[in-house]
């Protein structure tokens, strides 16, 4: 029993270390890929970012709307419904925007990356590349990694903006909060540093979500079950890491 726990712990530490080494390997190839194979990166930004826009816009709008509704109905009791704009913008810019975008990204794009790379491995395409003396890391993995890193902060900015507009729609247009109070309260209290905190988080989450997606895909067992397991693990591991990191970043920045 104790021995099994010990083994599992050792295996966890080993995987964690291997992930770091994999990350360093990706970073080593990143400048080269970014400069010389920019076209591949652009294609991956399209794949992971542009194709996620509809999801991000719709989810952002509705998250903002429901947040506005909830905050309004609670603040109404204290006659403080003027601060709806402040509360929703604060929550969206600092927490909900970066975190939910990372989770949605993991579900929409991370799974696609993992299963694509996993299937390439299962169908021996990666081995075929190696046979042709093409290193699959800079050709296949790094462009996807970089594409994700570029896409997530942009998606987060779009998500947060849509959320605030959604809250505006519900609070101002439907519930009758004064439009001046809504924006003025927000502008008076929110600092540029609050926005920067959200951007910083989104960059970190972008790196983590992309790294875990390509890592799971690259290390998938080359079978149908292995690929499906890698896809599932991508979402689970990204969700856990993002939420833990979110707490750590918030705690260190406060």
């Amino acid at each position: 029993m104790l021995r099994e726990i010990y083994q599992a712990l050792l295996e966890f530490v080993r995987t964690f270390g291997a992930l770091q080494l994999f990350f360093l390997r990706l970073l080593r190839h990143s400048p080269f890929v970014f400069v010389k194979r920019f076209r591949l990166v652009v294609f991956q930004v399209y794949n992971t970012g542009v194709l996620s826009i509809v999801l991000i816009v719709v989810c952002g709008g509705f998250i903002g709307a429901v947040l506005g509704l909830q905050v309004y109905s609670n603040l109404k009791r204290f006659n403080a419904e003027d601060t709806v704009g402040l509360f929703t913008a604060f929550a969206l810019a600092k927490e909900i925007g970066p975190v939910l975008t990372a989770l949605l990204f993991a579900g929409r794009a991370g799974t696609a990356l993992a299963s694509e790379i996993g299937l390439m491995k299962a169908t021996d395409q990666l081995s075929a590349m190696e046979m042709m003396a093409v290193n699959p890391i800079p050709r296949v993995v790094v462009p996807r990694f970089l594409g994700g890193i570029i896409a997530v902060p942009i998606l987060t900015a779009i998500f947060t903006t849509m959320g605030i507009l959604g809250a505006h729609l519900v609070a101002v247009e439907l519930l009758g909060v004064d439009v001046g109070a809504f924006w003025q309260q927000m502008q008076q209290t929110l600092e540029p540093s609050d926005i920067y905190e959200g951007i910083f988080k989104s960059v970190v989450f972008g790196i983590v979500a992309s790294l875990l997606a390509v890592w799971e895909g690259y290390n998938a067992l080359p079978t149908a079950a292995g690929v499906s397991r890698a896809t599932t693990r991508t979402v689970v591991v990204t969700a856990i890491s993002v939420l833990i990191l979110d707490f750590m970043i918030t705690a260190s920045l406060l």
Partner: peptide, 17 residues
């Protein structure tokens, strides 16, 4: 996509703060 992102960022930094 990138332009949209820059627009959103611009909105966030100038309009909400």
């Amino acid at each position: 996509f990138v332009l949209l992102g820059i627009g959103a960022l611009f909105f966030l930094t100038t309009q909400t703060t």
